[in-house]
Amino acid sequence: MTSLRMAAHLLVLPILATTLSSCGDPIEGYCESLKGHQEELTRTLGEGGTGGLIAALPVFEDLESNAPDDIEKDWATITGAVSGLSTALEDAGVSADDYENGKPPEGVSDAEAKKIADAATKVSSTKTQEASVRVQQHARDVCHTSLTL
């Protein structure tokens, strides 16, 4: 599905560019979570596309749960969007990989296809992209850890 692929690329590319580092005392747990998930994010997001993005959802949720107050809302925006897409695909009984040339596989109703498309649009929305940029900037500014994905 073209919009699924675009949504994944729009969210994954900024995350892949993130740089992170060791943190100050007030948010040490958050910075340690970022560092602790470094390898897993590299591997999971490296799978590419929407499938990799959805596979990274547990990491995003963990980072959200450890996020300091000033960035928690942005993590919630990201995890909410990706979770919505995951749920829409799961409810339809398909995976992102089941889409070919942007077309849903046989057996997906028009209503399910619309729900999936709407969820993919939310992942690639300006709101989600801006949240991703803020999360990355916060990680660079506060944690100062280099992350190469």
Rank of each mutant, 00 (worst) to 15 (best):
M1Q: 06
M1A: 11
T2S: 12
T2L: 06
T2C: 09
L4S: 04
A7T: 06
A7K: 03
A7M: 11
A8Q: 04
H9A: 12
H9S: 14
H9W: 06
L10I: 00
L11M: 14
P14L: 03
P14E: 12
P14V: 04
L16W: 09
L16Y: 03
A17I: 05
S22H: 11
C23E: 14
C23W: 00
G24E: 09
D25S: 07
G29A: 11
Y30D: 10
Y30R: 01
C31Q: 02
L34V: 12
K35Y: 10
K35H: 10
E40N: 05
T44R: 11
G46I: 03
E47S: 14
E47N: 13
G49A: 09
G52L: 06
L53M: 13
I54N: 08
A56W: 05
A56F: 04
L57R: 08
V59L: 00
F60V: 11
F60T: 01
F60R: 01
E61K: 12
E61H: 02
E61A: 14
D62F: 04
L63I: 03
E64L: 07
E64S: 07
N66M: 15
A67D: 04
A67E: 10
P68N: 01
D69I: 08
D70V: 13
D74R: 04
D74H: 12
W75F: 15
W75I: 01
T77M: 09
T77P: 07
T79D: 04
T79Y: 01
T79F: 08
G80W: 07
V82N: 06
A88M: 04
E90F: 02
V94N: 06
A96P: 05
N101K: 10
N101C: 03
G102M: 01
G102L: 05
P105H: 09
G107Q: 02
D110A: 05
D110V: 05
D110N: 02
A111W: 03
K114F: 02
D118F: 13
A119Q: 03
T121H: 07
S124T: 03
T128E: 13
Q129M: 12
S132W: 00
H138R: 10
D141R: 03
V142W: 05
V142R: 11
C143F: 04
C143S: 01
C143W: 04
H144N: 13
L149Q: 04
